[in-house]
Design a protein around this nucleic acid. Sequence first.
DNA 1: GCCGTTTTCGGCCCGACTGTTTTCAGTCG
Length: 571
Amino acid sequence: MTASEVAGILAEIGRLAELVDPNPFRARAYAQAARALEGSDLDLARLAHADHLTSIPGIGPGIAQAIREMVTTGSASIHAELSAQIPAGLYAVLRVPGLGTKKVRTLREQLGIESLDDLERAAAEGQVAGLSGFGAKTEQKILQGIAFLRTTLGWRRYPDALATAVRLLEWLRGHPAVGAAEIVGGLRRRMEVVNAVELVAASGQPEQVLEAFAALGGVRPTRRVDRATFMLQDGLPAQLRCVPVERFVGITAWETGGEVHLQELSVRADACGLRLTADGVYQGAEPLPLPAESTLYEMLGLEYVPPELREGCGEVVAATGALPRLVKEEDLRGTFHCHTSYSDGTASVAEMAEAARARGWSYLGLADHSRSAGYAGGLSVAAVAKQHREIDAWNRANRGVHIFKGVESDILADGSLDYDDATLARFDYVVGSVHSGFGMSEREMTDRVIRAVRNARLTILAHPTGRLLLTRDAYAIDLRAVIDACAEHRVAVEINADPHRLDLDWRHVRYAAERGVLIPINPDAHSTRGLDNVAFGVNMARKGWLQAGQVLNTWTLEEVETYFADRKQNS
DNA sequence: GCCGTTTTCGGCCCGACTGTTTTCAGTCG
């Protein structure tokens, strides 16, 4: 069992304990222990054997015992005990915005609510508003929250769905009757959220493959001609289409989509005497075997269009010779929005820098939270000075990775940044973020953010809409107006590559780039492993048609140093 | 449940906001 898997179970114990244990600090202890382990490479089995688990900060004798159980038996009895006390449906209730553990407990004790359906019924009947501590507004907010949650049901964020898809793909490719297999659908187009895991396999024995695939689900599969679908454990449908080898490529392209892209391809195909169908590419009445998707595009007189561009945003026209050379992960030379243990990260300055070097980068920008973010250990002015001394020492030692001194400064309600000008001037660059006051009107929020953009100390605007995918909608903001202001004041706008955010959304990336706004891809890393988030950001950059030069972290160390110095001089 | 120590208990990231109250509990970031 890996440290990450143990962390997952500890986090789950924390959530369960929140719902049943009157002492909130016990739940927090499990959550903190989970945080200490997630993204670490610790060999817990070895530490358990040597009785050294409690040397990890945040792990005492109680949690050490639970970990020992997990690494030897694969599960922990405390987890089973707590699970038995909590109906599964109560998790969803806890996800309703505005409901915390206290209110959920009250709802359960007073009204017997154990699921979203229970809660929706009670709220619709007006039972909730009558409870002590609740009122009419809370009841309305609950109903709105449930409506939002229902729109997210059945959807998964990219990395979660991808992990499942890759497992299924490996299984398929290992099956003796399968010649080729591919992930298709939104996942192949690298959409930020998907509502299914879709695969296509080539086989001469489709019955055998579909049967075996469906059996993986352990439940009775839905079968339709050449398809099998089953529900994954987490409620996401997994669908396999099993097709003859000679039609595999055409069907893969069809199943990858998107809809508008296929329509536009079909028009070109008609003109070339070909037919694009759900059953492959046809020339006359005969299916046309294709060695690769690139052959299909070539036959249509087009450059190969990478799957992530197939969204019907003008890529078919552009593929006649004007497709961008999309940025690649290998183009990155560093990144700019990372946290350390000075605020709410888990790794030290040196550990983060070493991790950057391990990724072949030549620089790393650290941007810990500012003082308003007390909940995240935001840095006092004194702590900033201490961190800067540590960074200076690292840079003097010339260890191959240069550390830039940055900060993630809260954009306060009035649009000001969170330190005085003299303090802000001590950083190489300043990242600005909204972390509070999400309830403003669109006008107020837009004015607030633009005021921050006009501040000459601001270098990068972070996660510009504040959305959390499948958890929280973007706050109201006129994003075009903000991007225009960033263009005018030469403020870069990040693609926050945390897969929960992916904000700036790829649908706005192209507009920003067209306005000449520089776009860094920032992992918002809170651990060394969090640096790998950049891969998700690269996906979004590619979906937004970005080329390497438009992404700040493809620039060389010298270029970035000059850019920051130039910005500071003009501020 | 963990931690630190002026150890063996008492505190635990902390301040703003909201809606419910009528002075504050609960939630959120």
